[in-house]
Amino acid sequence: MRDKSHIQQVERWAEFCKNNPSEFRKYLNAFLNAQIIKAREFYTRLNNSEDGRVILNKLKAEKLKK
């Protein structure tokens, strides 16, 4: 749930990015890469089974509806 502390963290982090332009990227890149890598690993696991491929196709169909 997004309470006041959440927006305070958004503001704190934005100030850090603004004041440390050469520093923030290492944290950001690790975070973003980890998300993509974990998601790819999951989709690869799905793709390795027939049931998984059915789910993958449903996910893809849902995405392409947008």
């Binding site: 990227r25 290492k26 950001l28 890149n29 690790a30 973003l32 890469n33 993509i36 890598i37």
Partner: peptide
């Protein structure tokens, strides 16, 4: 696997 932290991330 792209676990090394470089200047550019996967999205970049």
């Amino acid at each position: 696997m792209e676990r090394a932290i470089s200047d550019k991330n996967i999205l970049d």
